[in-house]
Amino acid sequence: MSPSLAPELAGRVTRPSGPLVIDIAGVTKLYKMGEEIIHALRGVSVQIHRNEYLAIMGPSGSGKSTLMNMLGCLDTPTAGRYEFNGKNVATMVDDELADIRNREIGFVFQTFNLLPRSTALANVELPLIYAGYSPSERRERAIHTLENVGLGSRLHHKPNELSGGQRQRVAIARALVNKPSIILADEPTGNLDSKTGVEIMALFEQLYAQGNTLIVVTHEEDIARHARRIVRLRDGLIESDGPVG
């Protein structure tokens, strides 16, 4: 048992046997909004292991987004410890964080965030360019990944030629293509109708079964219940952290 975990929560956390990927302990985050100081996170500790399927829930203003930005290495904590695969992320500079994001984290956004003028294939290749893969390797891996999410026949379509569900599949392929340690999805079904949302969650289930580590940030209970573990936030603190059941 990690001494950094809040004692009252420690017993309820499920611990898969996989190695530790994310180790956050006592993390706080302060924002200055004009004169006012906002405590977005007031001391959060979470451990996430390989091949976990985790949902982060909480109402708006709970610190959910801040925690997600922190987990995604888009932001660094004001205080506290954050280790990603044993590396101290809290003190990293911009470009080091960019490399971690490139290699270790796959982002899936609510609004898909695809490059509008690039084909599905070019969108999926983008992280591989930043990783320094050769054009032929990029192409091969991107095609393989798009086939894996069921878009093998849509390689050369641009986002405006694809349906919402297909766009999100392209985004998921883009998140997967660099074989990251975690997939971080922010309201992945928020811009989709419920039927397409179910399809996307089925795809997540498939990815989880293939051994990926998934973190889904959502405010929808239905979506969160697809995960195996739910972390609930309120007022910048962890309210509960336990298995779905």
């Binding site: 995604g72 911009d94 994001r101 490139n102 290699r103 965030n113 992280p127 930043y130």
Partner: peptide, 16 residues
């Protein structure tokens, strides 16, 4: 701006 954010999230460095 949003595209820049996306690219950064995907691992674009400052120089990129």
């Amino acid at each position: 701006t949003k595209e820049i954010g996306t690219r950064k999230a995907l691992g674009a460095r400052r120089r990129t």
